[in-house]
């Protein structure tokens, strides 16, 4: 079953940990979908791009939304167009094939070269969604009753699936995947990631910003901890704003770039300065609901 070793090594614009690289290669070799979880902004989506770049393959992205149905990934039968054509068009409606539009999965199966297929944010869809794809992902083929055709993958695509853990995924689905949780990068790893985006950052600024960033992350009960993409944006803001590195820790400039929730801003200000105390207590009634 194992496929000859293709070795994913990471790419210049994407920093990959040994752990993650390992999991990618295991999934490729075992020909199993790789399920990636991790905090928002930890590079889940970008991983697929990096794999495609590194292996020189085409990337096909299937973005999942709450209304996405598994069927759409295979094919859609455009009955409305056919109806329309039968009433007003001159084209031949007896050729059903014309009205079958392949979805992303179908597309990935039909391309002659192997591809990387990214099923992004699978947890957005209905609870049943992953189960509906079990067979197709296992067999890498599906049947179109309307045209009596079976579409089979010429080359098994490398399937990367990401999830933000909005819903639990069904066990039957999980059993068929290789799983990897992208741990939040430690400062050392983070410096490498930052260097990809801001190669010429002043050392002192980076140092102070990183310390502040990890300090903020360590504060418990934040609703949304700042993550990689926010750090990258924040550094940008600090540079553009010409902020004095020595002021970063005490002034927390552009804090809104890091923290997107008002409650979180309050919590931080409260913990750091003992200010805004009254605000925290009054703003959200629920905060003190149980304190008597």
């Amino acid at each position: 079953m194992a496929r000859k070793a293709v070795d994913y090594k990471g790419s210049s614009d994407y920093i990959v940990s040994d752990e993650l690289r390992n999991s990618v290669n295991i999934a490729i070799a075992l020909q199993k979908p790789l399920l990636i979880k991790g905090e928002p902004g930890t590079g889940k989506t970008m991983l697929a791009q990096s794999i495609a770049d590194s292996l020189g393959l085409k990337l096909i992205i299937w973005n999942i939304k709450s209304t996405t149905k598994a069927q759409e990934g295979l094919y859609v039968y455009d009955t409305v167009q056919r109806l329309y054509d039968s009433q007003f068009g001159e084209s031949d409606v007896s050729d059903i094939k014309k009205y079958i539009k392949l979805g992303k999965l179908g597309e990935a199966f039909l391309t002659s070269d192997p591809v990387v297929l990214l099923i992004d944010e699978i947890d957005k869809a209905d609870l049943e969604f992953p189960n509906d794809l079990l067979w197709e992902l296992d067999q890498m083929s599906f049947y179109i009753p309307e045209t009596r055709e079976t579409i089979t993958a010429a080359n098994r695509p490398i399937v990367i699936i990401t999830s933000n853990a909005e819903k639990e995924l069904p066990d039957a689905f999980l059993r068929r995947c290789i799983f990897h949780y992208i741990a939040f990068p430690d400062p050392e790893g983070m410096e490498k990631i930052v260097a990809v985006h801001h190669p010429r950052l002043e050392k002192r600024l980076l140092e102070q910003a990183m310390e502040t960033f990890y300090m903020l992350r360590s504060i418990s009960n934040l609703q949304k901890r700042p993550s990689t993409s926010e750090l990258i944006d924040w550094l940008q803001a600090l540079v553009i704003g010409g902020i004095n590195p020595n002021k970063i820790k005490q002034d927390l400039p552009y804090l809104g770039v890091l923290l997107k929730k008002n409650e979180d801003l309050d919590i931080i200000l409260n913990q750091l300065h003992g200010k805004a105390q009254s605000r925290v207590q009054n703003a959200k009634g629920s905060f003190n609901r149980y304190r008597y």
Binding site: I26, I178, F179
Partner: peptide, 9 residues
């Protein structure tokens, strides 16, 4: 890492 990737979901 192999065990974890394959067995832990």
């Amino acid at each position: 890492y192999l065990c974890r990737a394959v067995l832990v979901k």
